[in-house]
Amino acid sequence: MPAGFDPSGRLPDFFANPGTSSFTQFLSVHAPELLPGRRPLPPGYSADMAPHATTVVSIVCADGVVMAGDRRATAGNLIASRDIEKVHPADPYSLVGMAGTAGVGIELIKLFQVELEHYEKIEGAMLSLDGKANRLAALVRNNLGAAMQGLAVVPIFAGVDLAATDPAKVGRIFSFDVAGGLYEETGYDGIGSGSLFAKSALKKRYRPGLSVDEAVTLGVEALYDAADDDTATGGPDLTRKIYPVVMSATTEGTRRHTDEEVGAIAESVVARRMENIGG
């Protein structure tokens, strides 16, 4: 029932109660059924029930951060989706990606976006980058029960710290564990089943102070390496023109790199691999 509808004519509770600035806390009081992690689950382990989303990488560059995700979702040995989007803007200055149970992950991202926007509107100011990361950690923590039954999701969060005084520390990446642990990463990070291979590729090629374009190319290459060795990660699909989702966040805002831009980079990466398989 939409909040505010009370035919008695009495003052709806949430008009009378000043409450907090957190949308999640508001939901937990007024519409707990909308919160992931508050739904009773039948006993048992059900990891194979829903599609899984896989590899996302994030790279710090001179102006901010870049995040790239492949487009595959799998259900067991089948491809559940060829064009799922795992990387989204969290707010104008940060990006969030997810790996794990796709449905739970998409809900988590949606809730996180509203959480940040809600705080900004209520308080008239944005949360700090660390504040945003902490809120996301709390959302992951709330999903622990479902995670233990196989519906796990792990996000990755990256953004620009507008309060940073050191220009080298403008772009920051945070990773999470399934229990809600929050870890700040240096330089680059990846999540999902292909992240092992993607991170190995990044370890050899990453250097501090990359431009946005260099970081985008690096991200697409790392996803290519992940798809090379992990069945659950999709490579660039040149026949269907489905390319990784690549977004960047700088002090100018977030930007999704267009399919034409990413397509050109993906094609050049594939062409280079024709010459040299190892990249």
């Binding site: 939409p2 508001f26 007024h30 519409a31 909308l34 509203v114």
Partner: peptide, 10 residues
């Protein structure tokens, strides 16, 4: 703001 965000979310 709460009502709008709640409706937009649901």
């Amino acid at each position: 703001v709460r009502k709008a965000d709640l409706d937009g979310y649901s």
